[in-house]
């Protein structure tokens, strides 16, 4: 099978294991291409893509834009802060206006959960979810799986622990879906107040003790504390959080094994992770960023090919 089962990438939840594997193998070919002297292929030269960002982003947006340019697509960018959304236009009107200018694909980030799903029901273009509120961030989970696969050779059977603010994290949920579908074992670790209630239904282990969780896992995916999404106080202070849940060199050195350190960025150095860990050879944070472009190229290519 060389075709995705879905016309949109709304979330990992909607993908099959075969879809995930197809995206990851295609991404491997694109990674080879972006390391060539001429980093560009003409595949999407008759495709126009709009990046519609209703929420701030540097990494994801740049990564998508580079992926689109490496595939020779025409790209238009839109961010809500400088648009008519401020004048009261609805989401559907905004997007329909963009589509009226003959755009084939929409990459959207939105602060509301389900915004891309809503759009997919009402418009014809292929939609890629670049993050919807606290729900899903599928391309991040795909690039995380790609990076684990690249470093460890396999995802199935590996033990991955996600640390930190699980409650507000779309990266966590997409990663849980992606890892479970590929047969990995998943654990989450963080303060009780930042762990959502539905974790048991997802078949995820829960650990409150940082050291025990680190001792268990092969891969540690460390998340940022999303203060901008926290409307109430979930823990006394950032200082206290980093005392209990900050990953530093001492605690990693005290383990009897080596683990892979991942972080989706942006990093808050000194809070969830110290600089010496983030910059250590075990950290693959910058590999993740590089792989992000290849994975997004694969997603865009495969969706465009479905027409």
């Amino acid at each position: 099978m060389s075709q995705l089962s879905v016309p949109h990438l709304l979330g990992i939840k909607e993908l099959t294991r075969e879809d995930i594997e197809l995206i990851l193998t295609t991404a491997k070919h694109f990674k080879e291409i972006i390391n060539r002297p001429i980093k560009k292929v003409p595949s999407l030269r008759d495709v126009t893509i709009a990046n519609v960002f209703f929420e701030n982003s540097t990494r994801t947006r740049l990564s998508f834009e580079l992926a689109q340019k490496r595939l020779s697509a025409d790209v238009v960018n839109f961010s809500s802060s400088s648009s008519s959304v401020k004048k009261g236009e609805t989401l559907l009107d905004t997007v329909n206006n963009i589509l009226a200018m003959k755009v084939d694909m929409i990459v959207m980030r939105h602060s509301s959960v389900g915004a891309p799903h809503f759009l997919a029901k009402h418009i014809k273009a292929n939609i890629v979810n670049a993050g919807d509120g606290t729900h899903e961030h599928p391309t991040q989970a795909l690039l995380d799986s790609f990076s684990i696969h690249e470093k460890l050779g396999v995802v199935e059977g590996k033990k991955v622990c996600i640390f930190g603010d699980i409650l507000h994290s779309r990266v966590a949920l997409s990663n849980i879906f992606a890892l479970k579908k590929q047969g990995a074992e998943v654990m989450v670790c963080g303060p009780n107040t930042l762990l959502p209630r539905y974790l048991n239904e997802l078949g995820v282990k829960v650990e409150l003790d940082l050291r025990k969780a680190l001792q268990w896992c092969d891969v540690a995916n460390v998340l940022r504390i999303q203060l901008e999404r926290q409307t109430i106080k979930y823990f006394p202070s950032l200082r206290e959080y980093s005392l209990y849940y900050g990953i530093n060199k001492e605690i990693l050195d005290s383990l009897d094994k080596e683990i892979l350190i991942m972080h989706p960025g942006p990093i808050n150095r000194g809070i969830e992770i110290t600089s010496d860990v983030a910059d250590s050879p075990h950290s693959i944070i910058l590999d993740q960023v590089e792989n992000g472009v290849a994975v997004r190229m694969a997603v865009l290519y495969l969706l465009a090919g479905r027409g």
Binding site: S2, Q3, H29, R306
Partner: peptide
């Protein structure tokens, strides 16, 4: 050499071709 990403029939065919190693 794999030419999948350089083909001129992308989006014009029903079946998508699988890429191979270059």
């Amino acid at each position: 050499l794999d030419a999948t990403f350089y083909r001129d029939d992308f989006r014009r065919k029903d079946i998508q071709l699988k890429a191979n190693e270059t």
